[in-house]
Design a protein around this nucleic acid. Structure first.
Length: 469
RNA sequence: GCUCCCUUCGUCUAGAGGCCUAGGACAUAGCCCUCUCAAGGCUGUAACACGGGUUCGAAUCCCGUAGGGAGCGCCA
């Protein structure tokens, strides 16, 4: 008998931007599916009408496509006629609500949100776990009817069985056992009729044939609830792998205040998707593979067994290391596409190529290319006192000779060096440093020869002559 | 408060009782190359949270302590 196909999913809610932590979960799920030649499903959990926005879903698609994580089924492609937007799956949920209600495994609860909040506070204050007290657990049919007739809109609560244990094996954390007495009856349908997360999330995983659920560790302790629900409905349990959370440099869970925490932000700053994928691949996941790997190679190397249990820290400097490698191996065409937005308008094709060739190995992000463009194409760059000291020490004859060489031989480095040597006898750092400073305003940077092909001829002369007179 | 999870170099991690005087990658330092920087090559610095136990032997097993995190929502 052939092995059942692996089916994984990414199930974000469209209530904000795709976060790096979620992006990593999506990547891992995608890698697992591709590693096993299985299916990857995208499901949008938009049951919270208040906070869900279609534009967030659109941006989610965009971010995933940018990362090159393609899905075999999702809201925009439903090969089986299945709805992958939870807001379109009401019929399915109604069916299972009814099944639970008829079986007595769920019951209507008329407690108001206010009452519940108060009860929770009181329990917490008394040093007890904030669990549902079971107020509506044993309402008689007559009572239920009476309240409904009075216009009360009940929620539906799942009746958690007493005195049982729930066991499951997590692919990352191993065996787990929880006692049901620690779990209060929880809401599976809101008063407005919409399904609550515990319910729709678990039911959909089962309905969609998801075999492996990779999700954040924050879901670990709610897993028993979902298992209870699936068991009550006699639905299949997926295998869970709870991935440790991503934190910022301060060790706190990654959030907006850490900066560059969203995929959009990284994209806009010019990070390359392959660099992001390679870095994410190594956060909380180990591999013997080193160096930049293609997505296909990442999929091949991915192994759930190599997911770590401890939270991982997101450090931008580590991302930068991957970015540097990926960026430096870009083809000339890809490099141009990467940097085009950072270049000044109106450059000829030839100028653009020369510029990119000259600086690309010296930069990590497009913003640095923009800085180089300003330095090379703009006004002669100002020098600070330290730089001026070096330039003045070289002497006026130094720059007169250099400028003269430009007039005679054009923007060629060799003759310029020879002319300076002949005129001043300068060599080594005393030769190169003043020249570089005068021409670029910086002490570091690419080879001078290619830079001379980038800076406009008249500007070269101007940059040199200002120290010759 | 209760339940659960986590803790190895700066960072990501390898490590499932002897192979560990703890390995790798990135970062970092030095050297080589070199007009600078980058790239490349070589070399180095650097970690088992703490305390008890079990054992001939513990990073690895057990107990506790400390620190961090999650959950207990008509949010997902």
């Amino acid at each position: 008998m052939p092995h059942a196909q692996v089916v994984t999913r990414f199930a974000p809610s469209p209530t904000g931007e795709l976060h790096l932590g979620n992006a990593r979960t999506a990547l891992f799920s995608w890698l697992l599916a591709r590693h096993s030649r299985g299916r990857f499903v995208l499901r949008i959990e938009d049951t919270d009408a208040e906070r869900s926005r279609p534009q967030f879903a659109e941006q989610l698609y965009q971010d995933l496509r940018w990362l090159a994580l393609d899905w075999d089924a999702g809201p925009d492609r439903d090969p089986d006629g299945v709805h992958y937007l939870q807001s379109a799956r009401g019929e399915i949920y109604r069916h299972y609500f009814e099944e639970l209600r008829v079986a007595g495994k769920a019951y209507p609860c008329f407690c108001s949100a206010l009452e519940l909040t108060l009860a929770r506070k009181a329990q917490l204050a008394a040093g007890r776990p904030p669990r549902y007290a079971g107020t509506c657990r044993a309402l008689t049919p007559t009572e239920i009817e009476r309240r409904q007739a009075a216009g009360s809109r009940p929620t539906l609560r799942f009746r958690v069985p007493e005195g049982q244990t729930v066991e499951f094996v997590d692919l990352v954390h191993g065996e787990h056992r929880y006692v049901t007495d620690d779990i209060g009856d929880f809401i599976i349908r809101r008063a407005d009729g919409s399904p609550a997360f515990f319910f729709s999330n678990a039911v959909d995983d089962a309905e969609m044939g998801i075999t492996h659920v990779l999700r954040g560790e924050d879901h670990l302790t709610i897993t028993p609830r979902q298992l209870l629900l699936l068991d009550a409905l006699a639905m299949p349990r997926p295998t869970y792998a709870h991935v440790a959370l991503l934190t910022g440099v301060d060790g706190a869970p990654l959030s907006k205040r850490h900066g560059a925490a969203s995929v959009r932000e990284l994209r806009e700053r010019g990070y390359l998707p392959l660099a992001v994928a390679n870095h994410l691949f190594r956060l909380g996941h180990s591999s013997t593979e080193t160096g930049v790997l293609t997505l296909a190679a990442l999929a091949k190397a991915f192994d759930v067994k190599h997911l770590g249990r401890a939270p991982a820290r997101f450090e931008i400097s580590q991302l930068d290391a991957w970015q540097r490698q990926v960026a430096h191996h870009l083809s000339p065409e890809a490099a141009e596409q990467w940097l085009v937005g950072a270049l000044p308008p109106g450059l000829s094709d030839e100028d653009r190529h020369r510029f990119i060739d000259a600086i690309r190995l010296n930069i990590v992000l497009p913003a640095e290319a923009a800085a180089w463009a300003r330095a090379l194409y703009g006004e002669p760059p100002p020098l600070n006192d330290e730089m001026l000291a070096v330039v003045h020490a070289a002497g006026r004859g130094f720059f007169a000779a250099a400028a003269g060489s430009v007039v005679q031989h054009g923007a060629e480095l060799r003759p310029m060096i020879d002319a300076i040597r002949t005129a001043t006898g300068a060599k080594g750092a005393a030769l190169w440093k003043p020249l570089r400073l005068a021409l670029t305003g910086r002490a570091d940077g690419p080879e001078l020869a290619p830079l001379l092909n980038v800076i406009p001829r008249a500007s070269i002369e101007e940059r040199l002559r200002r120290f010759a007179g």
